[in-house]
Amino acid sequence: MVNETATAGEVRVVRLRVNGELRSALAPVHATLLEVLREQLGLTGTKHGCELGECGACTVLVDGRPQLSCLALPVQVEGREITTIEGMAVGPDLHPLQRSFVETGAVQCGYCTPGMLLTAAALLEEQPHPSRAEVEAALAGNLCRCTGYVKIVDAVLLAADRAGTGRMPDGPVDGAGA
């Protein structure tokens, strides 16, 4: 927040390309990307669990690669493509990973979910047919306390499998309320 006291620090206009939209914000240079996304741009889908790079909850994509927004300065990512969880679905259509997470029960409390999904999306972009071990390795910086990771890994493999076979089901996810 820019306010009567924070202005003592150096404040800049940052122009960020977030989920395909150009957004600008007036922010102190010491505000992290996490803070600017959540507090300036209202993108509260990006979560935080430690702000020290130890849990992975704040993962976003920068030019398609997972980055911890708690350890990134907005000024460092100006001009790059930032994707948050809000940018994963296309309109009302869920990303195949979002769909597989819903269907397999990979979501319990949901707090690690945005970071998991974006990390998984980067993996499948690079390696469309990962092994179970590769999925586990890719997700190893994102802590989850609910699921034991089992269904999260299942969900990533399901999405990869569907992309490979074109077996993407149509229509809304069965039985789930939005």
């Binding site: 620090g9 010491h30 505000a31 702000e51």
Partner: peptide
Amino acid sequence: MLRLPRFSYRRP
């Protein structure tokens, strides 16, 4: 939220 202290940023 744990936040950074104030600093100036320079880009050489």
